[in-house]
């Protein structure tokens, strides 16, 4: 039975660009929104905010740890700071500041990382952020976002700006297929079921959402009914949707462009273990990648629809009859 999908998956903006646009919109709404960047404003698209609101933009130089703590100071003083850089630099160099100056006191700072995952391509592992979910989710009180397309990015960055408390959002470099229609509603912490199915559930985030939709089509052609859920929020997890999927489909695949260790998959596995244990498989990275085109890397490191479909077949083979 061939499935026809309502998902066209037309290429849209990169999620980093949608972030830059959302920041400008927030800046218009609220004069307390301020932005810090660390010599990457053209890559993170905070340059859009800089052009619009030059006096609310702080160029921090190549000094991410200092930038995060300056952001914390701005937040302590009542501003709504967004601090941005490549994800690997704002998260890794800024981690201690995100911990002691932000998470611990619970200040209202938003950290946004761009160029997440291996799909940045040629620059290679030093610029690829593949540990950020583990790090961000380890910080008590943080909301961790990982939007898949421009529509969800715009909505979730807006929601982050309105939420009082620390948020980390990961965004990507590549143009991302559009998943959602413009009128879709998003709520931080509420995952979105894109496709219903009864044999297996594919839970995905970021770029892997589109790949999972494609995998579902392949599986449908084989007579396998796969449910697909977008986890645009990695923390807090939507426990209800996970429990329901575990109970109703009895098999789960989690797909993410991140290390399996400490990633979305192991976080979901915890909820599955606590609510309704079932078989699971994990599509993710196991180590550092290398330089090549994004397409070559996604292929070599197993981040394609093909890989998600293979994991689904594997988990189904393990599912108790």
């Amino acid at each position: 039975m061939a499935a026809t999908t309502k998902f066209e998956l037309k290429l849209g903006m990169a999620t980093r660009e949608a972030f830059g646009k959302a920041l400008v919109a927030l800046g218009k709404e609220n004069r307390d929104v301020v932005v810090c960047d660390a010599d990457l404003s053209k890559s993170t698209f905070t340059s859009l905010f800089h052009n619009e609101f030059p006096d609310r933009f702080f160029s921090c130089g190549i000094a991410e740890a200092n930038m995060v703590a300056i952001g914390a100071g701005l937040a302590y003083a009542g501003k709504i700071p967004f601090v941005a850089s490549f994800s690997s630099f704002v998260m890794n160099k800024g981690f201690e500041q995100l911990r002691c100056a932000v998470a611990y006191p619970g200040v209202n700072l938003k950290a946004v990382g761009t160029h997440s995952g291996i799909s940045i391509g040629e620059d290679g592992p030093s610029q690829m952020s593949i540990e950020e979910t583990a790090l961000a989710c380890s910080l008590p009180g943080f909301i961790v976002l990982s939007p898949a397309d421009e529509v969800s990015t715009m909505a979730l960055i807006r929601a982050a700006g309105h939420h009082v408390g620390p948020v980390f959002a990961r965004t990507g470099r590549m143009k991302a297929p559009i998943i959602y229609s413009a009128d879709q509603k998003f709520e931080m912490g509420k995952a979105i079921q894109l496709i219903d199915g009864s044999d297996v559930t594919i839970m995905a985030t970021g770029l892997l959402v589109a790949e999972s939709i494609r995998a579902q089509e392949t599986l449908a052609a084989e007579g396998i009914s796969a449910r697909v859920i977008d986890f645009h929020t990695i923390k807090p997890l939507d426990r209800d949707i996970i429990r329901k999927a575990a109970a109703e489909t009895g098999a789960i695949v989690v797909a993410e462009e991140h290390l399996v260790d400490g990633g979305l998959g192991v976080r979901i596995a915890q909820v599955v273990a606590e609510t309704h244990p079932c078989v699971m498989e994990f599509v993710g990275l196991t180590g550092y990648a290398e330089s090549a085109t994004p397409e070559q890397l996604l292929d070599k490191y197993g981040m394609l629809a093909r890989d998600v479909a293979a994991a689904a077949r594997k988990v189904l083979a393990r599912k108790p009859k």
Partner: peptide, 25 residues
């Protein structure tokens, strides 16, 4: 910068052991 090259985008001792360190951050 091509797949498999010892000449990675940033110096990478895994691909080019004569380099003294992997850098880029």
């Amino acid at each position: 910068r091509k797949l498999g090259s010892m000449y990675q985008g940033h110096p990478d001792v895994r691909f080019f052991p004569a380099l003294e360190a992997s850098t880029g951050s």
